[in-house]
């Protein structure tokens, strides 16, 4: 699985400015809806499901990264977006640090394997210092998409 298989380029938010975790999640889901990757009428239900998942435990996994996610019957394939919050967002992360890179995933309930492989894929790239560092410095969707392509093609060292 490649990042380009599930990250929707049009939904990337390279400069997310929000004060709360809930606002970050809302903006990201709205962005997916805005480009038609999810239906607008499902937007609130998806936001609610992601927030409910966060209540089980933060998806802020440390290293300035969060992966808010949910399964939702309205999607028939895994869709995701990325947001970069230069000022950081308090995500109640495991390590107590603010989050600067967010991957938001919505996956079909009957495809748990895809969700696991997407998490594997995201984590594998985020372990790469170059990937993280370049991602934090990206200022446009185009730059993020190019970086994802380089990561998919293992060009980041």
């Amino acid at each position: 699985m490649r990042l380009s298989d599930f990250v929707v380029p049009e939904a990337i938010l390279p400069d997310l400015k929000v004060d709360t975790k809930e606002a970050a999640i809302r903006k990201m889901v709205e962005s997916l809806a805005g480009c038609g990757s999810i239906q607008t009428e499902d937007q609130e239900s998806i936001i609610a499901a992601i927030l409910k998942r966060e209540e089980l435990g933060s998806t802020g996994i440390g290293n300035g990264v969060a992966v808010p996610h949910t399964k939702h019957p309205s999607v028939d394939r895994l869709v995701a977006t990325i947001a970069l919050a230069k000022d950081g967002v308090d995500f109640a992360s495991l390590d107590g640090e603010d989050v600067f890179i967010l991957f938001l995933l919505v996956s079909p309930p009957d495809r748990p394997g895809d969700h696991l492989r997407a998490l594997e894929n995201i984590s594998r790239h985020l372990r790469n210092h170059n990937f993280c560092s370049f991602l934090k410095q990206a200022t446009s969707s185009k730059a993020v998409v190019e970086l994802l392509d380089e990561a998919d093609n293992n060009q980041l060292g």
Binding site: I61, G62, N63, V65, L94, G113, L116, R117, L119, E120, I122, S123, R124, L126, R127
Partner: peptide, 12 residues
């Protein structure tokens, strides 16, 4: 002890 590491196992 690292979430990023652990998630890369994709243990099904």
């Amino acid at each position: 002890t690292s979430m990023l590491e652990l998630l890369t196992l994709a243990a099904e």
